[in-house]
Amino acid sequence: MIELTPAPAFAALSLPVTGAGTRIDALPPARITALAPYCGQLQALHALLGGFPEPGQVLELDGLRLVWAGRDLAFAFGEALPTGIEAHAALTDQSDGWAGLSLTGPGAEALLARRLPFDVRRMAVPGAARSLLGHMPVLVIALGRDEFELWLWRSMAACVLHHLTPV
């Protein structure tokens, strides 16, 4: 079996970046599992997990963060998926495909306002939104008015960072 060496998505890029009242840093890699409920299984999934996010919701559950990630789709951040969950939802390991950035500071909202085509000030806290940064799909998580996470396709990490970097 081939042994692959894990490498951070932003290793070659100089992080953290600061400027415009914002600090941009890489988030540690996370175990991300996409949960797509099977037809008619939403209630069972709800009971098993202790909740399932509505559009825009972020739920902090026992050792697991559930983030709404699209129509009838949630991303589970964390290792603690309950046993038997595969009977209720299609599970896809997304861990390798995504890279996360944290944006913190009083300028974070203004920085994102220049780059995202929707108003992050209207996001609930905690809250989640899917959108585009330039042409690149992103998952935005608001953890505070000055604290955001930006999850993006790992292959586009350098490009997203280029778009984000305050001039």
Partner: peptide, 11 residues
């Protein structure tokens, strides 16, 4: 219906 009012470029 999920995300509310959004810019045309997202569609």
């Amino acid at each position: 219906p999920c995300c509310g009012w959004r810019d045309r470029r997202e569609f």
